[in-house]
């Protein structure tokens, strides 16, 4: 029987080994981005901006032009690129520490100006790269290395739903929340990302694509446990968008 090739690594993913931990969502999200850019034929017109955090090295894995931004400043960097290069697809890739804490100001104002950029926001409720500290998005009661007894609202405030806030702004044309912890989720995510890229190139405003992701190391869980924990704890608080 002749073999049939049903799946292969996306063309725009490089051969470099991921530095991500087993069970981390970043690798899958990288794959989805590489696939959508290739499908849309935008390899030569895409410029990505990496944040500070685990995904700082995204430029090692997706074969397009990249800029590495200072912590939290990706949306301002994207604004500078897009304003002077309106024909390019300009997107940021940011974690919740980068975007929802130190970069809140830059994010909100890019959104409010309606800059035609796509913000890919990966929310795993902790600072991954620095070792699992509390993020603005950390759930109440959730244990991290800086909330060893669990996040207490009286001490640390409340988990921050950035997407819901951003979506209220006039300059935002699209907000969606996705996850890639199931095969169906990956399919939906691919569709959502494509829609965001298309809207951006139509000049409709800022698109905000949130991924609720896992951080197995920061959460101190196995890959399987992390996926389960995401389902049971993250998604009730950060509900995925309807299809």
């Amino acid at each position: 029987m002749a073999e049939e090739l049903v799946y292969k690594k996306p063309r725009l993913l490089t051969d470099k080994d991921f530095h991500f931990c087993p069970g981390c969502s970043h690798g899958t999200i990288h794959k989805v981005i590489a696939e959508v850019i290739d499908q849309m034929g935008m390899e030569n017109s895409s410029i990505g901006i990496t944040p500070v955090g685990c995904s700082v090295l995204a430029y090692n894995y997706i074969d397009i032009d990249w800029v590495q931004a200072a912590h939290g400043r990706a949306c301002a960097v994207a604004t500078g690129i897009k304003r002077l290069n309106p024909s390019k697809l300009v997107f940021t890739y940011q974690g919740d520490g980068d975007l929802a804490a130190i970069g809140t100001g830059e994010t909100i104002h890019a959104a409010n100006r309606g800059d035609n950029i796509v913000v890919i926001y990966v929310n795993n409720a902790v600072y991954g790269m620095t070792g699992g500290q509390m993020a603005p998005t950390t759930l109440l009661g959730m244990k991290t290395v800086t909330t060893p007894n669990g996040r207490d609202a009286k001490l640390h405030g409340y988990p921050f739903k950035v997407g819901e806030m951003i979506s209220q702004l006039e300059g935002v044309c699209y907000f969606t929340r996705q996850s890639v912890h199931t095969a169906a989720g990956v399919r939906r995510a691919r569709k959502a990302l494509r829609r965001a890229f298309e809207l951006s190139m139509e000049g409709r405003g800022l698109s905000f694509v949130e991924f609720v992701g896992t951080c197995s190391s920061g959460w101190k869980m196995s890959a399987v446990e992390a996926n389960k924990w995401l389902d049971e704890n993250m998604l009730p608080f950060y509900p995925l968008s309807a299809e």
């Binding site: 931004a69 960097v77 830059e106």
Partner: peptide
């Protein structure tokens, strides 16, 4: 929105 925003827009645009 701020000088921080401005200099990072400069950084991005200068990259191109």
């Amino acid at each position: 929105e701020s000088e921080i925003g401005a200099i990072n827009m400069i950084y991005g645009a200068a990259c191109t």
